[in-house]
Amino acid sequence: MNNKIQKPLIATKDLSVHYPLRSTKLFGPPPVVKAVEGVNINIAPGSFFGLVGESGSGKTTLGRALLKAAPITRGEVTYSDGEVEFDLTDIEKKDLQEYRRRAQLIFQDPYAALSPRMTVRDIIAEPLEVMGITKSREETDRRGRGIAAKCRLNLEHLRRFPHAFSGGQRQRISIARALVSNPKFVVADESVAALDVSIQADVLNLLKEIQKEMGLAFLFISHDLSVVAHVCDYVAVMYLGRLVETAPTRQLFESPRHPYTKALLSAIPSLDPDDYGKAEKLEGEIPSPTNPPPGCKFQTRCRFAIDICRSQEPKLETEDGHDVACHRWRELLEA
């Protein structure tokens, strides 16, 4: 959590991911979707870093860029785990293979992510074989079983096919597959969103346990703030491709500074029926990234927006280890 002293595992500087669209005009440059724009984050080794925002905010693209699974248009991404250092913007093929072993991804939908024609054993062992990490079948089996046991899958489970498992169990299989190559960094993209509340806690506790035991860092992408609050050490809030606020979890939830973060927190349905109507309602929807508004990207939905917000884009300001990009955050804090 102390990223100033400790060297971050993943550090980005001004990271941008732009996708060109098909040209609609005969002349002139094609329109560009700025999915991620000027993002600076540091993920400390062994930390649980949360990334939240509505759909369309660029969370997934950012996660993919960190794995070099999305094109990096501008800026830097560096990875450094004490053994190796990579600059992802300029990485050789051989290094990229090594990076793939050290950085993994857990997908959202455990029903779509597992091949129905492979046994659980093969699903978990495949990364080892493809990356040539293990030398013999015995070694592959041993490692596969070891990680499966950590994810609470027994030998009987390994012989079966994915269709025989429930959502929670399938997600545990996906986790085992992602972790079998012993990565240092794992992107978990909405990994519990498809699960029932009753088993969601089970998968979250497992992720947390593994993170502590194996000392790996998670980038936990989620739209569910209450889940993020419970597992993450550090949280970044995204809106329309920009980071609008980052802070240690407790600080973010106790004293959110950005109006967008406040609205997101307020929109979580309360368990108390008498709270109805107390939530701060955010009007409208996230604008299209092809045609973002000028100035602060949130100004179209922000009830505090004034002239400066409509013309000038706010920069991230840091105070007490808490970053926020809002022209009026100080004023709003005092009010």
Partner: peptide
């Protein structure tokens, strides 16, 4: 079901599946 819901007012409460 209610105990499994992550509550925002107590971040230290363990999540119970």
């Amino acid at each position: 079901l209610i105990a499994a819901l992550p509550q925002l007012d107590n971040l230290d409460a363990p999540l119970v599946a």
